[in-house]
Amino acid sequence: MTITDLDLQYFVSSLKTLSRYDLSNYSDKSLKRRLQKVLEDYNTTIIGLINRMMNDQLFVEKVVRDITVNTTELFRDPPVWHLLRSRVLPRFKDNSTINIWHAGCSTGQEVYSMMILLHEMGMFDRAKIFASDINTDVLDTAKHGVYKYRFNLNYLDNFDKVIKQNPLNFDEYKDVPYEKYFDIDKQKDIMQMKPFLVSKPIFRKHDLVTEGNIFYNKFDLIMCRNVIIYFNYALQNKVFELFHSNLYPKGGLVLGLHESILGPWASKFERLGQSYVKK
Protein backbone atom coordinates (compact mmCIF):
# COMPACT_ATOMS: atom_id res chain seq x y z
CA MET A 1 0.00 0.00 0.00
CA THR A 2 1.31 3.42 -0.89
CA ILE A 3 0.70 6.42 1.30
CA THR A 4 -1.03 9.26 -0.49
CA ASP A 5 -0.57 12.96 0.24
CA LEU A 6 -4.02 12.90 1.79
CA ASP A 7 -3.09 10.02 4.14
CA LEU A 8 -0.01 11.93 5.18
CA GLN A 9 -1.98 15.11 5.79
CA TYR A 10 -4.55 13.21 7.83
CA PHE A 11 -1.82 11.63 9.94
CA VAL A 12 0.06 14.89 10.53
CA SER A 13 -3.04 16.86 11.47
CA SER A 14 -4.29 14.08 13.75
CA LEU A 15 -0.93 13.92 15.50
CA LYS A 16 -0.99 17.67 15.95
CA THR A 17 -4.38 17.43 17.67
CA LEU A 18 -3.48 14.41 19.78
CA SER A 19 -0.09 15.65 20.95
CA ARG A 20 2.22 18.63 20.84
CA TYR A 21 4.17 17.15 17.95
CA ASP A 22 3.98 19.10 14.74
CA LEU A 23 5.42 17.23 11.77
CA SER A 24 3.79 19.46 9.18
CA ASN A 25 7.12 20.91 8.14
CA TYR A 26 8.95 17.63 7.86
CA SER A 27 10.24 16.61 4.47
CA ASP A 28 7.40 14.68 2.79
CA LYS A 29 9.44 11.97 1.20
CA SER A 30 11.07 10.61 4.30
CA LEU A 31 7.94 11.04 6.39
CA LYS A 32 5.91 9.01 3.88
CA ARG A 33 8.45 6.26 3.90
CA ARG A 34 8.68 6.15 7.68
CA LEU A 35 4.91 6.16 8.00
CA GLN A 36 4.64 3.33 5.52
CA LYS A 37 7.11 1.31 7.58
CA VAL A 38 5.13 1.99 10.77
CA LEU A 39 1.93 0.76 9.09
CA GLU A 40 3.69 -2.39 7.94
CA ASP A 41 5.27 -3.01 11.35
CA TYR A 42 1.92 -2.69 13.14
CA ASN A 43 0.09 -4.37 10.26
CA THR A 44 -2.54 -1.64 10.17
CA THR A 45 -4.00 1.14 8.03
CA ILE A 46 -3.85 4.90 8.49
CA ILE A 47 -7.36 4.81 9.98
CA GLY A 48 -6.42 1.93 12.29
CA LEU A 49 -3.26 3.68 13.38
CA ILE A 50 -5.00 6.94 14.19
CA ASN A 51 -7.85 5.19 16.02
CA ARG A 52 -5.33 3.50 18.25
CA MET A 53 -3.46 6.76 18.79
CA MET A 54 -6.67 8.45 19.94
CA ASN A 55 -7.09 5.96 22.77
CA ASP A 56 -3.51 5.46 23.85
CA GLN A 57 -1.17 8.34 24.62
CA LEU A 58 1.79 6.00 25.12
CA PHE A 59 1.20 4.63 21.65
CA VAL A 60 1.34 8.16 20.25
CA GLU A 61 4.80 8.58 21.79
CA LYS A 62 5.84 5.23 20.36
CA VAL A 63 4.73 6.15 16.85
CA VAL A 64 6.66 9.42 17.02
CA ARG A 65 9.74 7.51 18.11
CA ASP A 66 9.32 5.08 15.22
CA ILE A 67 8.86 7.83 12.70
CA THR A 68 11.93 9.89 13.53
CA VAL A 69 15.25 8.77 12.07
CA ASN A 70 17.89 7.66 14.56
CA THR A 71 21.09 6.72 12.85
CA THR A 72 24.47 7.98 14.06
CA GLU A 73 27.98 6.61 14.47
CA LEU A 74 31.20 7.26 16.33
CA PHE A 75 33.27 9.87 14.45
CA ARG A 76 31.01 9.77 11.37
CA ASP A 77 32.86 11.49 8.47
CA PRO A 78 36.44 11.70 9.80
CA PRO A 79 37.22 14.84 7.70
CA VAL A 80 34.64 16.76 9.75
CA TRP A 81 36.38 15.65 12.94
CA HIS A 82 39.73 16.68 11.49
CA LEU A 83 38.27 20.11 10.92
CA LEU A 84 36.94 20.25 14.49
CA ARG A 85 40.34 19.25 15.78
CA SER A 86 42.49 21.53 13.66
CA ARG A 87 40.35 24.66 13.19
CA VAL A 88 37.08 24.77 15.12
CA LEU A 89 37.90 23.67 18.67
CA PRO A 90 41.29 25.46 18.92
CA ARG A 91 39.37 28.74 18.71
CA PHE A 92 37.98 27.99 22.20
CA LYS A 93 41.30 26.85 23.66
CA ASP A 94 41.64 29.81 26.02
CA ASN A 95 38.01 29.86 27.19
CA SER A 96 37.43 29.13 30.87
CA THR A 97 34.31 27.15 29.88
CA ILE A 98 33.24 25.71 26.54
CA ASN A 99 29.53 25.03 26.07
CA ILE A 100 28.61 22.51 23.42
CA TRP A 101 25.08 21.49 22.40
CA HIS A 102 24.41 18.33 20.41
CA ALA A 103 20.96 19.02 18.96
CA GLY A 104 19.28 15.81 17.77
CA CYS A 105 21.94 13.59 19.36
CA SER A 106 20.08 10.29 18.78
CA THR A 107 21.88 7.40 20.50
CA GLY A 108 24.77 9.67 21.45
CA GLN A 109 27.76 8.33 19.54
CA GLU A 110 28.65 11.83 18.39
CA VAL A 111 28.44 13.16 21.95
CA TYR A 112 31.01 10.58 23.02
CA SER A 113 33.16 11.29 19.96
CA MET A 114 33.24 14.96 20.96
CA MET A 115 34.20 14.21 24.55
CA ILE A 116 36.98 11.87 23.44
CA LEU A 117 38.37 14.51 21.09
CA LEU A 118 38.13 17.23 23.76
CA HIS A 119 39.95 14.96 26.20
CA GLU A 120 42.76 14.38 23.70
CA MET A 121 43.02 18.14 23.19
CA GLY A 122 43.18 18.84 26.94
CA MET A 123 39.85 20.72 26.91
CA PHE A 124 37.60 18.08 28.49
CA ASP A 125 37.43 19.46 32.04
CA ARG A 126 36.42 22.92 30.91
CA ALA A 127 33.70 21.68 28.56
CA LYS A 128 30.01 21.54 29.39
CA ILE A 129 28.18 19.08 27.19
CA PHE A 130 24.46 19.37 26.50
CA ALA A 131 22.61 16.89 24.32
CA SER A 132 18.99 16.60 23.27
CA ASP A 133 16.67 14.54 21.11
CA ILE A 134 12.94 14.26 20.57
CA ASN A 135 13.05 10.50 21.11
CA THR A 136 13.36 9.25 24.71
CA ASP A 137 14.36 5.71 23.68
CA VAL A 138 17.49 6.85 21.90
CA LEU A 139 18.28 9.25 24.77
CA ASP A 140 18.24 6.27 27.15
CA THR A 141 20.81 4.53 24.98
CA ALA A 142 22.87 7.72 24.87
CA LYS A 143 22.78 8.05 28.68
CA HIS A 144 24.09 4.52 29.15
CA GLY A 145 26.81 4.73 26.49
CA VAL A 146 26.62 1.02 25.65
CA TYR A 147 26.74 0.04 21.98
CA LYS A 148 26.82 -3.13 19.92
CA TYR A 149 30.40 -3.98 19.13
CA ARG A 150 30.30 -6.03 15.94
CA PHE A 151 27.66 -3.92 14.28
CA ASN A 152 29.88 -0.90 14.84
CA LEU A 153 33.29 -2.24 13.90
CA ASN A 154 33.89 0.63 11.49
CA TYR A 155 33.79 2.94 14.52
CA LEU A 156 37.26 1.76 15.42
CA ASP A 157 38.49 2.63 11.97
CA ASN A 158 37.07 6.13 12.37
CA PHE A 159 38.60 6.40 15.86
CA ASP A 160 42.02 5.57 14.42
CA LYS A 161 41.64 8.14 11.66
CA VAL A 162 40.60 10.95 14.01
CA ILE A 163 42.38 10.24 17.28
CA LYS A 164 45.49 8.25 16.36
CA GLN A 165 46.46 9.84 13.06
CA ASN A 166 47.23 13.44 12.30
CA PRO A 167 45.82 14.31 8.86
CA LEU A 168 48.24 17.21 8.57
CA ASN A 169 51.22 15.00 9.27
CA PHE A 170 50.95 11.32 8.43
CA ASP A 171 54.28 10.52 10.11
CA GLU A 172 52.72 11.41 13.42
CA TYR A 173 50.91 8.56 15.14
CA LYS A 174 49.54 8.64 18.67
CA ASP A 175 48.86 5.16 19.91
CA VAL A 176 45.84 6.00 22.06
CA PRO A 177 44.39 2.72 23.39
CA TYR A 178 40.64 2.22 23.01
CA GLU A 179 40.48 1.25 26.71
CA LYS A 180 41.24 4.82 27.59
CA TYR A 181 37.68 5.68 26.54
CA PHE A 182 35.66 2.49 26.21
CA ASP A 183 35.79 -1.19 27.09
CA ILE A 184 35.13 -3.79 24.44
CA ASP A 185 33.57 -7.11 25.44
CA LYS A 186 33.60 -9.29 22.35
CA GLN A 187 31.80 -12.14 24.14
CA LYS A 188 28.84 -9.97 25.01
CA ASP A 189 29.27 -8.02 21.76
CA ILE A 190 29.27 -4.64 23.48
CA MET A 191 31.38 -1.55 23.81
CA GLN A 192 30.86 0.42 27.00
CA MET A 193 31.93 4.04 27.34
CA LYS A 194 34.01 4.80 30.45
CA PRO A 195 32.15 6.19 33.49
CA PHE A 196 33.95 9.56 33.36
CA LEU A 197 32.44 10.09 29.88
CA VAL A 198 29.00 8.68 30.67
CA SER A 199 28.50 10.93 33.71
CA LYS A 200 29.41 14.18 31.99
CA PRO A 201 26.71 15.23 29.51
CA ILE A 202 23.32 16.65 30.40
CA PHE A 203 20.79 14.77 28.26
CA ARG A 204 17.29 16.22 27.83
CA LYS A 205 14.24 15.39 25.74
CA HIS A 206 13.69 18.31 23.38
CA ASP A 207 11.68 19.03 20.24
CA LEU A 208 13.66 21.37 17.97
CA VAL A 209 10.44 22.35 16.22
CA THR A 210 8.28 23.49 19.12
CA GLU A 211 10.67 24.25 21.97
CA GLY A 212 13.34 26.93 22.29
CA ASN A 213 16.60 26.66 24.20
CA ILE A 214 15.92 24.48 27.26
CA PHE A 215 19.43 24.57 28.71
CA TYR A 216 19.56 28.17 29.98
CA ASN A 217 23.01 28.54 28.49
CA LYS A 218 24.45 30.02 25.36
CA PHE A 219 26.80 27.92 23.33
CA ASP A 220 30.27 28.11 21.84
CA LEU A 221 29.49 25.25 19.50
CA ILE A 222 26.33 23.57 18.25
CA MET A 223 26.49 20.17 16.56
CA CYS A 224 23.39 19.30 14.54
CA ARG A 225 24.29 16.66 12.01
CA ASN A 226 21.86 15.07 9.57
CA VAL A 227 18.82 16.38 11.41
CA ILE A 228 17.66 19.26 9.22
CA ILE A 229 17.59 17.06 6.11
CA TYR A 230 14.26 15.85 7.46
CA PHE A 231 12.88 19.40 7.69
CA ASN A 232 11.51 21.59 4.96
CA TYR A 233 12.87 25.02 4.10
CA ALA A 234 10.60 26.97 6.48
CA LEU A 235 11.39 24.76 9.41
CA GLN A 236 15.11 24.78 8.63
CA ASN A 237 15.05 28.57 8.83
CA LYS A 238 13.30 28.41 12.18
CA VAL A 239 15.99 26.08 13.50
CA PHE A 240 18.80 28.27 12.15
CA GLU A 241 17.23 31.23 13.93
CA LEU A 242 17.16 29.25 17.19
CA PHE A 243 20.80 28.28 16.75
CA HIS A 244 21.91 31.78 15.79
CA SER A 245 20.25 33.42 18.78
CA ASN A 246 21.73 30.89 21.20
CA LEU A 247 25.31 30.94 19.96
CA TYR A 248 27.89 33.28 21.46
CA PRO A 249 29.40 35.72 18.96
CA LYS A 250 31.86 33.75 16.81
CA GLY A 251 30.24 30.53 18.02
CA GLY A 252 30.44 27.53 15.71
CA LEU A 253 27.76 25.42 14.02
CA VAL A 254 28.50 22.06 12.46
CA LEU A 255 25.90 20.44 10.17
CA GLY A 256 26.01 17.14 8.30
CA LEU A 257 28.48 16.72 5.46
CA HIS A 258 25.78 17.31 2.84
CA GLU A 259 23.70 19.90 4.68
CA SER A 260 24.00 23.64 4.23
CA ILE A 261 22.30 26.85 5.26
CA LEU A 262 20.13 28.08 2.41
CA GLY A 263 18.13 31.28 2.54
CA PRO A 264 18.24 34.32 4.80
CA TRP A 265 20.34 32.87 7.64
CA ALA A 266 23.26 32.10 5.35
CA SER A 267 24.39 35.73 5.50
CA LYS A 268 24.52 35.65 9.31
CA PHE A 269 27.19 32.98 9.32
CA GLU A 270 30.67 32.73 7.84
CA ARG A 271 32.06 29.49 6.46
CA LEU A 272 34.99 27.79 8.11
CA GLY A 273 35.63 24.73 5.97
CA GLN A 274 32.54 22.55 6.33
CA SER A 275 31.43 24.44 9.44
CA TYR A 276 29.75 27.78 10.13
CA VAL A 277 30.76 30.65 12.42
CA LYS A 278 28.24 33.16 13.75
CA LYS A 279 29.08 36.63 12.44
Binding site: D28, S30, T71
Partner: peptide, 21 residues
Amino acid sequence: APANYHMYIELGNKIALSTEE
Protein backbone atom coordinates in the same frame (compact mmCIF):
# COMPACT_ATOMS: atom_id res chain seq x y z
CA ALA B 1 24.51 9.64 -4.36
CA PRO B 2 26.94 10.58 -1.54
CA ALA B 3 28.51 7.80 0.53
CA ASN B 4 26.47 6.77 3.54
CA TYR B 5 23.32 8.66 2.49
CA HIS B 6 20.21 7.59 0.60
CA MET B 7 19.48 9.91 -2.32
CA TYR B 8 15.80 10.65 -2.98
CA ILE B 9 14.34 12.68 -5.82
CA GLU B 10 11.61 15.07 -4.69
CA LEU B 11 8.89 16.96 -6.48
CA GLY B 12 10.15 20.34 -7.66
CA ASN B 13 13.21 18.63 -9.18
CA LYS B 14 15.19 18.52 -5.96
CA ILE B 15 17.54 16.10 -4.27
CA ALA B 16 16.74 14.98 -0.73
CA LEU B 17 19.28 13.05 1.32
CA SER B 18 18.56 10.72 4.21
CA THR B 19 20.54 8.75 6.78
CA GLU B 20 17.79 6.20 7.34
CA GLU B 21 18.81 2.58 7.86
